[in-house]
Design a protein around this nucleic acid. Sequence first.
DNA 1: TATATTTGAAACCAATTGGTTGCAAATATA
DNA 2: TATATTTGCAACCAATTGGTTTCAAATATA
Lengths: 107, 107
Amino acid sequence: MRRDVFQAIADPTRRAIMALIAMQAMTPNAIAEHFDTTRQAVSKHLRILTECELITQEQQGREIYYQLEIEKMKEIDKWLEQFRAIWEKRFSQLDQLIATIKKQKKA
Amino acid sequence: MRRDVFQAIADPTRRAIMALIAMQAMTPNAIAEHFDTTRQAVSKHLRILTECELITQEQQGREIYYQLEIEKMKEIDKWLEQFRAIWEKRFSQLDQLIATIKKQKKA
DNA sequence: TATATTTGAAACCAATTGGTTGCAAATATA
DNA sequence: TATATTTGCAACCAATTGGTTTCAAATATA
């Protein structure tokens, strides 16, 4: 079974769960209340997110609090870097072009 | 059919294709040569990437050159921003903590 | 013009996915 | 102790996915 961050964030419900618990940890029941699906469906999403270490859990009595593992998100950021390098390069090239045009106008 | 950037980048072959054509446009045949799968499988990936506007094509005779639409990548970057805000906040809090400890050491 | 090359599209297939229902385990409460 | 709550897990199901084979269209070349 393939289990990585990219596959995890492919599902819109999972992205919504991530955004929901980003600021504060929540229990599965509390999370499920925010969605139209059943608790079990949310539970499966939480399992997938846990498997790829995007969230961690903390047991408190019979309740389990899930929280976002923000460090893991940097993996996506790191992958994006190679492309960010390209668009920043293009931007600076555009910048130079504008500078050249301005120079020509002055002359 | 759900067709968005997040679903598109979920597949490792598609991510590899994106990285491959990021610097220069390539034909489906040329792209397929870099992978173990058939040309048709690559073609299907190209279709999916095209449908969510992550790549664009340019016909040259009977060849079609595919290139990465780097602007579309910013959509992922934009989504990441909400989480980046969190980790930068945590970093600055850590920064403050270190500063406080240093202060205490001096005193 | 006949043939080869490049490509997309359709039909099909096995594996995976997101979802459901039902159940058992653990913890809290009466 | 008996009951209620919170939760994960297994079994099952329809839809989607990534892949294959086959075919047709368009363009280049002999």
